[in-house]
Design a binder for these strands. Structure first.
Lengths: 216, 216
DNA sequence: TAGATGTATATTGTATACAATTAGAAGCTA
DNA sequence: TAGCTTCTAATTGTATACAATATACATCTA
């Protein structure tokens, strides 16, 4: 029996998660250098576990390490954001196709509960997480854990920018409507329509974000 | 001007590459534990850079680290191999579609030169690399660097098993023939046929590998 | 004897100390 | 003053030393 979480978490792992969170929330901004001694002192640890955490985050694509210069919070170019959305498009539509025939009433109920949570007034600060959770529940019945993990990583990288987006509120309202639609088509097992809607959903999100990035 | 490679490589980076190579070549076998002190001594370095290398390899999926138990070389289940091939199928066919219209004569010549190298009698030990290089050249004109990097990682994980495959020689002959076909259809800009052939190529490889894995 | 409990040893995790490298300022030269 | 060298401080990279944890074996208890 395994709880799924590491029984005893090492300092390096805790630091990795904390720094990742700071990057995702924007507390650590893109391009910002990470001074090891400073951050280690702030967290009350030595540089060794911090360095291990940074190596991991570098492999995950959240920071960029240059020898003898240190780590900086990774930034995405517009082209890279577009590419990540393209990957999402290809893999998520595929997963949805696989998932719909395998969905149970329990899954659909979980989706509805998730959308309900998204309608709560205080959702905005943690909308990124809840929104990903919606997609995750939807793709879970496809039983493709590696793909799902990969997509979560992509979501995380993108969400950092979505969070900053001025037009998030409008995109947010649209997303809610589309989520309702997705649930309906999943319930009626209408794969082509559901996939088409998901495709539009992802493309719309991409368009909105990229437009706002280009303005700046 | 940048050569693309790190100007001054750190010990941790060198160790990461070396251990990755040992895993890919099968010198370090799946499930095998990695003793830090032992390996560090063998390489003539301290455990610190080795540990950083292992953290990176863990994030890349080549080893699994458990707190206070250490790192073991990751193993793939049959289901996971199948999933990786599925991802290849979705992303590589997409990249090929994008790449064909952008291919130059120079690209096609590089593909032919690569196939020529694959025909040399002493190719077997480094066939994995050369084979991936073929795919890479083919997808490069699509200009999707993130996707390409992701696919290289998947190739690396799969190649470790392909290398061991008893039937590699037969799969090898088939691959050569299919590579010729791919070049021909790329040259004639016949996207549907090229994509169909690539799809068959990947499916055949998957089928062969999974069959041999199930036997054992 | 089966099971629990304590203990020793091996191994990993982290802190401290030191070496290597970089970036920037100061000084020099034409 | 522009361009070059030299030096210094800041920062990263690595080794060593020590602390924490796990594993295996021995010991005890019922």
């Amino acid at each position: 029996m395994d709880s799924g979480l590491p029984v005893k978490r090492t300092i390096a792992d805790q630091v990795a998660e904390l720094v990742r969170q700071r990057i995702l929330t924007g507390e650590l901004k893109g391009g910002q250098p990470i001074r090891q001694e400073h951050l280690a002192a702030e967290l009350g640890v030595s540089r060794i576990p911090l360095r291990e955490a940074l190596k991991q985050l570098a492999a995950e694509g959240f920071v960029t390490i240059t020898s003898h210069k240190g780590a900086v919070v990774a930034e995405l170019s517009i082209q890279e954001v577009e590419e990540l959305f393209d990957i999402r498009l290809k893999l998520e539509t595929w997963l949805l196709q696989l998932a719909i025939p395998a969905m149970t009433e329990r899954d659909l109920a979980a989706l509805e509960k998730n959308v309900e949570e998204q309608r709560r007034p205080d959702i905005l600060p943690r909308w990124g997480d809840v929104n990903w959770r919606f997609h995750e529940i939807m793709y879970l019945p496809a039983n493709r854990p590696i793909t799902l993990k990969l997509l979560k990583n992509i979501h995380d990288k993108i969400d950092r920018y979505l969070r900053l987006e001025v037009t998030m509120r409008s995109g947010f309202v649209r997303a809610l409507r589309e989520h309702d639609g997705l649930i309906a088509f999943c319930r009626s097992r209408d794969i082509p329509t559901a996939v088409a809607l998901l495709e539009r959903h992802i493309r719309d999100t991409a368009r909105g974000l990229i437009a706002s990035l280009k303005v700046q």
